[in-house]
């Protein structure tokens, strides 16, 4: 009987461990500093997590498909710089689709290399991290990019606007999460992503076009990056070339924290959203208790290691238990 109860709690922890940890963390910090759960603070955290969050949604597809995407940070810088530059030359209405098209080309290129040529995704996207950074600098000439007339454009809507009191970035993050969650969990394509990431050979033996599925995961990732770039550019209306630098690791941390396996084949959009929020609230909480901003970098790394360790430990304990 005790054994069964233990298995029940253990099972809950293994399945929803991250969620439980999140709730415990929120309670502890809320007691330490009541401002932490103040509605303005919560809304602020979600809003500032939205850009990272949208990127993490796309990377979730890539990771479930069994690959990595380390290029999203510098790709986001690229999107931001490009859309800001085109804003003043083409006008916002054309700048946005043009920026999406260019970003999707980058995603297609990566998807081609990883999906069709079967190159290692770590190497490809690590290389693209650097290459895209180069493209961004070439585009901008190394200068910061600013919109000339910041007050005379509607472009700030995506980063600064709000609808019925809810900030637009939060709405976009929520909308993207709902749509992509449906794609991943309900469509035939989503099913194939899980199959390809879970066992690519078996997927091929079941007639799943593996290369095309991997290609599409990178397209989705790029579309999310473009959306994030739009939000970023719209919020700041001006930007440095390095605005997305380092975000690839935070994004990956959020995805893993949510419980997607780096080996592919598991994870959900909902879990990734939880991962994003945990990361956002932890960083916010650390600021509120008076730690310096720089501590975040160290803490993010510690969280990644903890999450991976929890994941691996849970798997190992499952491996040793018999198959019932």
């Amino acid at each position: 009987m005790t054994a069964l109860t233990k298995a029940g709690i253990g099972g809950l922890l293994a399945r929803q461990g991250i969620l439980v940890a999140f709730v415990v963390f929120m309670i502890v910090f809320a007691i330490a500093n009541p401002r932490f759960i103040d509605i303005d603070n919560v809304s602020g955290v979600i809003r500032s997590s939205a850009i990272l969050g949208v990127m993490a949604l796309g990377v979730t597809f890539v990771v479930i498909g069994g690959n990595l995407d380390l290029s999203v940070g510098s790709m986001m810088s690229f999107s931001t710089i490009v859309v800001l530059d085109l804003h003043d030359t083409l006008g916002p209405t054309l700048a946005i689709p043009a920026m999406f098209a260019l970003t999707l080309c980058l995603g297609a290129f990566i998807g081609f290399l990883v999906g069709y040529l079967r190159l290692n995704s770590l190497i490809v996207t690590l290389g693209m991290l650097s290459a895209i950074h180069g493209l961004t600098l070439m585009w901008s000439g190394g200068q910061n990019m600013d919109i000339a007339d910041k007050w005379g454009t509607w472009f700030g809507f995506f980063g600064r606007g709000s609808i019925a009191g809810v900030p637009v970035p939060i709405l976009m993050f929520a909308l993207a999460a709902v749509v992509l969650s449906l794609v991943l969990s309900k469509t035939p394509f989503g099913r194939k992503v899980y199959a390809v990431g879970g066992n690519g050979t078996a997927a091929t033996f079941s007639g799943v076009p593996r290369a095309r599925v991997v290609f599409m995961t990178y397209i989705i990732s790029a579309a999310c990056v473009a959306t994030a770039g739009l939000m970023q550019a719209s919020r700041s209306l001006g930007s440095q070339n390095t605005v997305g630098q380092g975000m690839e690791l935070e994004v990956l941390a959020a995805v893993i924290l949510g419980g997607a396996s780096l080996l592919g084949g598991s994870g959900t959009i909902f879990k990734t959203v939880i991962g994003v929020l945990i990361l956002g609230f932890i960083q916010n909480g650390l600021l509120l208790i008076g730690l310096e901003f720089y501590v975040q970098y160290v803490v993010t790394w510690v969280i990644i290691i903890l999450a991976v360790w929890l994941d691996v430990a849970a798997k190992r304990s499952r491996l040793w238990s018999p198959i019932a």
């Binding site: 899980y194 199959a195 879970g198 066992n199 050979t201 078996a202 033996f205 084949g265």
Partner: peptide, 8 residues
């Protein structure tokens, strides 16, 4: 290896 996606 070829027949099943074991985690599904």
């Amino acid at each position: 290896g070829q027949g099943l996606v074991l985690g599904m």
